[in-house]
Design a protein around this nucleic acid. Structure first.
Length: 608
RNA sequence: GCACCCGUAGCUCAGCUGGAUAGAGCGACGGCCUCCGGAGCCGUAGGUCAGAGGUUCGAAUCCUCUCGGGUGCACCA
C-alpha cells in the first residue's frame, strides 16, 4: 500500500510543467489562469474543472474554498475577480460567473493558432513529452505459465502491460518490458509426473499445450483420491531444481513446445518484450537469496504443520512439524509470513521474485518496477515488496492489479480445465471482421491483413476500455463487438480520414495554405478542443496506470470527428483555404487516433 | 472470522483524485445515402447512482454501518 503511493508520486507527471517539458495549449491556458488569479488574490493553487455542457465556457474555477478563507461570498468574490482581471495576451477571453464558479472561455483565434502550432512543433509526437528522459522503468507483464494454455485470463496482463509500456515510452521513459514466464516451480513436478504416468511424447508433440493441459487436469483429478501423487510431484520438482538430467531434459522440452505456442499468440497480438527471462533464469541465484536473508537476520527457520491431511483437519493427530525458511512481517503490518524455502529445500515463487528484483536493480537501476498482475496477488506483493525493502533492495515496486475475468458460470480454473482459449477468441474475432470485409473491394491479401488488425483490435479494446481494477464478465458479444464503443469504430474513423486524404492528394488544388483562424463551425471547434486534450489524457493514463482513459478519450474524439464529418464538407469547402485547413484538421485527427490506438497496442488499417 | 476489490439505465460500462441538468455503447422506437465510405450520423424512451446514516456551501464520488457479489489469508503461481 505504502509502496504503491510512494512510487506513484515518484512517477507522477508534474502538474506544473518545468521549463524543459513541452507545454501544450491547455497547459498554457491553465497556467495563465493560475498566474492571473494568483496575482489578483495572493492565493495559489486553483482547481481547474471542465464545466458541464449547459454552461458555455471551457474552464471553470470553483471559488468556494478561497471565499471561505477570505470570508467572502463566493459569487461576489467571483464577480469581483471577473471584473478585475485582464485576459490580454492570453489564450482566454470572457471571464463570467455562474454560481460560485469563475468560468473562462478559450479565445478562439489564439487558441486555434496555438493548437495548430503545437502540432507543427511536435509532429508525430504530439501528446508525448520528455518527462521520463534518462529514467528507466521495468514493466513485468503477461507472464503466462509454461505448459498451461494462454487463456483469456492472460489477455488482461498482456494488453494492459503492453499499453503501459507504450504510454510511458511516449512520455520519454526507457521502458523494459519483461515477460516473467512461469517456467519453474512445483507445477512442473506435477506435470512431469503426469507425463511419466500417462503421457506420450508424440501426442504431446502434436498439440503441446492442450495435451499438457489434459495431463495437468488429470493429475489434479487423480491427486484428489491419491495424495501420494503430491509427494511424488514435489520430488520431481526437487530433482529439477537439483539439476537431474532427465528432469531438466523434460522441462526444457515442455518449455520449448510451450514457447512456440506463446510466440505465435504474441505475434498475432503484436506484442513484444525487451526481455523474456522467466523464473528459471534465477535458479542459480536462489540459494544466495535465502542465505542473504538469513545473514541479515531477516529470515528464520519456522515450523509448519506437515502436509498430508487436507480438508478433514484431524486436529487430534499429532502431525509432524517440518522446517521451512520464512520471513516474518508482523512488525510491518503484515500478519502472514513470507515463505522462501520449502521443507524439502526447494524454492518458491517468492524466492524467485526476490532474486528477480535484485537482478532488475543491478541490470537496469530502474525508477520503478511495475507488476501488472491480478488483484488476487495483492497481499503476496505486499509481502514480497516489504521483504525486498528489508533486504536492502531499494526499488520502487508497484503492483498494478486488475480484476479477474469471470465466466458466466463462474471463475476460470486451469486445474479443472475450465478455460476459454485466447486463440479461439482471437480467431473468431478475425473471422467476424473478415465477414464484414467480404463486400469490400479489396484483394484477398489485404482482407486477411485487415481482418487481423480489426479483429485483434476489437478483442484488445474490449479489455482495455474498462476500468482496470474491476472484474470483467467474459462475454463473447462484447469481446467481438465492432460497433459503437469499440476499436473498429475508432479504426473506421481513421480509415475515413485516410480516404479523404487520398482523394485530396489526387485533386488539383491551388496554393491554398491552411489557416487555423478560418475555422469557426461549432463542430470544428469541438474537434480542436478535443484534440488539445490528448496530452493531458496521456499523462492521466500514465499516472494511474489506466489505459482505459485513453480508450474513452479516443471514443469521444472519433465521435466528434464523425459529427464533424457528417455536417461539414472538407473537400467541397467553400474556399480553397478552408478546404486546406479542414484537411489539416482531419490529418491531425487521424494522427491522434492512430497514436492513441498505438498506445493501446492496437494497429490501424489504411482501408477497411 | 479478518483484509482488500466491487454494486450507476433492461444488458455491458464511463463519470477526470467532492462541484452546476449523472453520460456512452448494445438492445427498443423514429428519422438520415442527388453530397468526402451506413463498421456511420441525428433524435426518443429508459436512473431513488444497492440501502441507511454522517461530513459540507455542495456527495455517484469521502467516512460509518447494513445488504449483495468477488478475491485473498504460510511449503500453488
Amino acid at each position: 500500500m505504502r509502496t504503491e503511493r510512494v512510487s506513484r508520486d515518484a512517477l507522477r507527471p508534474t502538474d506544473r510543467l518545468t521549463e524543459t517539458t513541452m507545454k501544450y495549449a491547455l497547459d498554457t491556458a491553465h497556467e495563465q489562469i493560475q498566474n492571473i488569479l494568483e496575482s489578483a488574490t495572493g492565493s495559489s493553487s486553483f482547481e481547474m474543472k471542465t464545466p458541464p455542457p449547459n454552461v458555455e465556457a471551457d474552464i471553470a474555477v470553483p471559488m468556494f474554498r478561497l471565499a471561505k478563507e477570505k470570508k467572502e461570498n463566493p459569487v461576489a468574490l467571483a464577480q469581483r475577480l471577473a471584473g478585475e482581471i485582464s485576459l490580454e495576451g492570453t489564450l482566454l477571453c470572457d471571464a463570467t460567473v455562474t454560481g460560485g464558479f469563475l468560468n473562462f472561455k478559450l479565445a478562439t483565434g489564439p487558441f486555434l493558432d496555438r493548437v495548430f502550432a503545437d502540432f507543427s512543433a511536435r509532429g508525430e509526437s504530439f501528446g508525448g513529452s520528455e518527462q521520463g528522459d534518462g529514467k528507466t522503468i521495468v514493466v513485468d507483464f503477461s507472464s503466462p505459465n509454461i505448459a498451461k494454455p494462454f487463456s483469456v485470463g492472460h489477455l488482461r496482463s498482456t494488453v494492459i502491460g503492453h499499453s503501459i509500456v507504450k504510454i510511458y515510452r511516449f512520455l520519454g521513459y526507457t521502458v523494459v518490458g519483461d515477460n516473467h514466464i512461469g517456467d519453474w516451480g512445483t507445477q512442473f513436478g506435477k506435470l512431469m509426473l503426469a507425463f511419466e504416468l500417462w503421457g506420450d511424447r508424440e501426442t504431446v508433440a502434436a498439440n503441446p499445450i492442450r495435451e499438457l493441459l489434459d495431463l495437468y487436469v488429470r493429475y489434479h483429478d487423480e491427486a484428489e483420491s491419491d495424495p501420494a501423487l503430491d509427494e511424488q510431484a514435489r520430488s520431481w520438482f526437487r530433482r529439477l531444481e537439483e539439476g537431474d538430467p532427465k528432469a531438466r531434459e523434460t522441462w526444457r522440452w515442455f518449455r520449448e513446445v510451450s514457447w512456440e505456442e506463446f510466440d505465435r499468440i504474441y505475434r498475432l497480438l503484436g506484442v513484444e518484450f525487451e526481455e523474456v527471462l522467466g523464473e528459471s533464469f534465477y535458479n542459480d541465484q536462489l540459494d544466495q537469496v535465502v542465505e542473504q536473508a538469513f545473514q541479515s537476520g531477516l529470515a528464520e527457520w519456522g515450523e509448519i504443520e506437515a502436509r498430508g491431511g487436507k480438508e478433514g483437519e484431524g486436529e487430534d493427530s499429532p502431525e509432524a512439524m517440518e522446517k521451512v525458511a520464512l520471513i516474518h512481517l508482523r512488525d510491518h503490518g503484515i500478519e502472514t509470513p513470507l515463505l522462501i524455502q520449502k521443507s524439502d529445500g526447494t524454492s518458491l515463487y517468492a524466492t524467485r521474485d526476490l532474486a528477480t528484483i535484485r537482478h532488475r536493480i543491478e541490470t537496469w537501476a530502474p525508477e520503478a518496477i511495475i507488476y501488472v498482475v491480478g488483484g488476487e496477488q495483492k497481499l503476496y506483493f505486499q509481502q514480497v515488496f516489504k521483504a525486498a525493502e528489508l533486504l536492502g533492495l531499494e526499488a520502487n515496486c508497484v503492483h498494478v492489479p486488475f480484476g479477474l475475468i469471470r465466466l458466466p458460470k463462474g471463475k476460470m480454473s486451469t486445474r479443472k480445465g475450465r478455460v476459454i482459449f485466447l486463440e479461439d477468441v482471437l480467431e473468431e474475432a478475425v473471422r467476424r471482421a473478415e465477414a464484414v470485409l467480404e463486400e469490400r473491394d479489396l484483394s484477398d491479401e489485404e482482407k486477411t491483413e485487415i481482418a487481423r488488425i480489426v479483429g485483434i483490435g476489437a478483442v484488445k479494446y474490449a479489455d482495455l476500455s474498462q476500468t482496470r481494477t474491476k472484474d470483467v464478465l467474459f462475454d463473447w458479444e462484447k469481446m467481438l463487438n465492432m460497433q459503437g464503443d469499440s476499436a473498429p469504430y475508432l479504426q473506421y474513423a481513421y480509415v475515413r480520414i485516410q480516404s479523404i486524404l487520398r482523394k485530396a492528394a489526387g485533386m488539383p488544388r491551388g496554393q491554398a495554405v491552411s489557416s487555423p483562424r478560418s475555422l469557426g463551425h461549432p463542430q470544428e471547434l469541438t474537434l480542436v478542443k478535443t484534440l488539445a486534450g490528448f496530452p493531458g489524457t496521456v499523462r492521466a493514463a500514465a499516472t494511474g496506470y489506466t489505459p482505459h482513459v485513453i480508450a474513452g478519450y479516443l471514443i469521444s474524439l472519433a465521435r466528434d470527428f464523425s459529427s464533424f464529418y457528417n455536417q461539414v464538407p472538407v473537400l467541397k469547402a467553400e474556399t480553397p483555404e478552408l478546404a486546406a485547413t479542414r484537411l489539416e484538421l482531419c490529418r491531425r485527427t487521424a494522427q491522434v487516433l492512430e497514436k492513441g490506438l498505438d498506445l493501446l497496442g492496437i494497429e490501424c488499417p489504411e482501408r477497411m
